[in-house]
Structure formats: structure tokens, C-alpha cells
Design a protein around this nucleic acid. Structure first.
Length: 259
DNA sequence: CGAACGACCTGTTCGC
DNA sequence: TGCGAACAGGTCGTTC
């Protein structure tokens, strides 16, 4: 499930634990993943997030890049503990190790140069003003929900938070991006900031198996207003929340509140 | 070019 | 109870 708030949570926690530490080695467990080199003996000079990607910068101008996709998790183990089920790779330090756990094996791990992509991608926690959304969306006919989830435009919003944002902004998910007014984009921007910041403060949404770096559940699942509430009454108007497929993914919305 | 869909994987849930 | 089908949070490549 990792979307922006979950990856941001890991990013902050990783920074606390591994900044300045020396990597002993990176061990690949899942043969589907390519081995990475040039990490041994290097120390961590920074940890950052870009959309849903995690970057661990090393002192040799190399960068460990991870993407957790659907079911990936990272777990910090600071003393000898059993290898978890579905462990896919680990990054070992003197003080402990990061284990990547991923039942569906979609997560990725690569070693990149220091010059990571410079493409113009907007981070919803940074700069993502309504007028820019309106400008980009003006000639896009795809549904506004798909627009919000397009990582080439805004990086970090996935299915759960897209549903939540559009509900809070009172915009129907099927609306074409080009039909959304500036006024409505302003509501989308405000909802995005509020929801994602709160979700980060809650350390993410633990619907099924999401856990933070220390194995703790997040708390934002208690704040969800529409996601997972199909068939139940809308918290605003009490009419029934619908759940339908949009672009292949389950989409919960209130047909009365979201225009 | 944009949009829809299948593929990538495994575990869980649902219906018969 | 048992079994197969459907479905799950994300991205990418192909096709129409």
C-alpha cells in the first residue's frame, strides 16, 4: 500500500536510524532482484523521498533507490532476530539491518548515479498549486482521479488517498480533468495538503499489512472517510457510498456529495 | 497521443 | 469444509 505518507514515514525513520552509518553489505535474497555493488563500506550521507521512491545517498556519489510498489515494507532489526517471511533483500549495518519484506515481490532495488532524474514532477507536500493543476489538466480528458494518480504529473498519490482527496474536495472521480474548474482545483489542493500531512503525522494507513520501520501500525485508517466504506452511509449526507471500478481500481465515492 | 488493458506476483477473501 | 475465482495498495509495456 505504500503511498506518499507511508514512504515519507519510512524516509524520516530511516534518516534517524541510518544517517552517517556505514553499510556493511547489501544482500539479495529474492533471485528476481539484481545484485547491487559499490555499497560496501560506504556511509549514508542522506535519505530522501521522491514521490514513492526512497533514495539512500552514499558518500561515493551512488544512490540506493527503492520502490515498495504494492506490498513492500521495510523493517529495522537492531539485534539478532529471525529473518521474516517474504524477506527480499537486506541492507546490513554494524548497528542492525534493514529488511525488505514483500509478499508479492513487486518491490524494486537499484543502484543509481548521483544525478537522479531531474524531470519536472510536483510533490504534493511541496509545490503543487491549484493554478498549476488547472493548467496541466486543462487539456487532459482522463478522469480526475487517474490524473491525480499519474506519477508523471504529481508524485505520490495512490488509490486510497486519491479517493479521500476527491471526497473531501467534493469532486466526482469520473470527471474529466479538463472539466475541473480552478475553484475546484483549489479545493483539491487544500484537501491534498491536509490529508497527506495528517496521514504523515499518523505514520500512514494500516489497512492490512502496512507497518512502519519499527513494525508499528499507522493510525490513518481510523481517519478514512470513503475508502473501504462502499455500501455504508456517507458521513456527510447519510446516503450510501458506492464502490465501482475506475481505470481498473476500486473507487469509493458518494454520488450525492461529489459532483 | 491518450486511454484501456494485461502483466508482474502472492496471499486473502468470497461464492458455490 | 474445500476449491477455484476474484481481488488487493503500484507501475510498465502493449494495443487500439
Amino acid at each position: 500500500m505504500p503511498e506518499l505518507p507511508e514512504v515519507e514515514t519510512l524516509c524520516m525513520q530511516l534518516g534517524e536510524v541510518i544517517f552517517g552509518r556505514v553499510i556493511r553489505n547489501i544482500e539479495i535474497i529474492d533471485p528476481k532482484l539484481q545484485p547491487v555493488s559499490e555499497a560496501e563500506g560506504r556511509y549514508v550521507s542522506a535519505v530522501s523521498r521522491r514521490g514513492k521512491f526512497l533514495h539512500i545517498f552514499l558518500d561515493n556519489d551512488r544512490t540506493v533507490v527503492m520502490h515498495l510498489r504494492m506490498t513492500g515494507r521495510l523493517l529495522w532489526q537492531d539485534r539478532h532476530q529471525d529473518m521474516p517471511r517474504h524477506a527480499r533483500f537486506l541492507i546490513a549495518f554494524e548497528e542492525g539491518r534493514i529488511v525488505c519484506i514483500d509478499p508479492r515481490r513487486f518491490a524494486t532495488l537499484t543502484m543509481e548515479g548521483a544525478e537522479l532524474g531531474t524531470a519536472l514532477i510536483h510533490d504534493p507536500l511541496q509545490e503543487c498549486p491549484a493554478h498549476l493543476l488547472e493548467e496541466i489538466g486543462r487539456n487532459r480528458k482522463l478522469p480526475v482521479k487517474s490524473f491525480l494518480m499519474d506519477q508523471r504529473i504529481i508524485a505520490g498519490i495512490g488509490n486510497i488517498y486519491a479517493c479521500e482527496i476527491l471526497y473531501e474536495a467534493s469532486v466526482a472521480p469520473w470527471r474529466k480533468a479538463c472539466s475541473v474548474s480552478l475553484r475546484e482545483w483549489e479545493r483539491v489542493e487544500a484537501a491534498t495538503k491536509r490529508i497527506l500531512e495528517k496521514a504523515v503525522a499518523c505514520r500512514g494507513t494500516s489497512i492490512s499489512d502496512w507497518r512502519d520501520l519499527f513494525g508499528r501500525k499507522g493510525e490513518y485508517q481510523h481517519e478514512l472517510k470513503v475508502y473501504g466504506r462502499g455500501g455504508r452511509p456517507c458521513l456527510r449526507c447519510r446516503r450510501v457510498i458506492l464502490r465501482e471500478r475506475l481505470g481498473g481500481r476500486g473507487t469509493c465515492y458518494c454520488p450525492h456529495c461529489q459532483k
